[in-house]
Amino acid sequence: MTIPRNAFPAIFSNLAKASEKQQLYVLEKLFSELSESMQLKSSSRKVSPETIKNQITEDLQNQYPEIMKKAEYTEERGVHRALRWGEKVTTLQKSLIDRYLLKGDEFFVENDLFICEACGFIFLGKTSPGLCPVCKAPEKRFTKVS
């Protein structure tokens, strides 16, 4: 399997987390360094919330259903789970952008955004949602975006 160049930062930041959970802190640090060193520089290309929404919509309409179909008759439980969670989290990303476009900037300044570190679910509100509705991670796994 060839690995696309842009995939490395996420592969390595994930391995850093997996090292930290085993208390392999030297490995954690090295994987983090490697992840950051391979991070692409942010370009000055103008991006709007709509652009991201379009890419996400394509995932929901085509990518997830197609991969799920391929995974259906396999025993790959991890892939099934990742696709289910990913589809839910992506649906909520899209609805968040929709709410931004509908309600405007002020609404997002007044409310806080909380992210589940386990599955990526984003919650908009005054306080964190407690249990994650997607992956059932406890409240302590939520971090506030600021």
Binding site: A7, S13, N14, Q93, L96, I97, G120, I122
Partner: peptide
């Protein structure tokens, strides 16, 4: 928020 959430999804794909 989107950037962080997408990174977490990307990491799950990596696993």
């Amino acid at each position: 928020a989107l950037g962080k959430s997408l990174r977490i999804l990307a990491e799950d794909c990596a696993r």
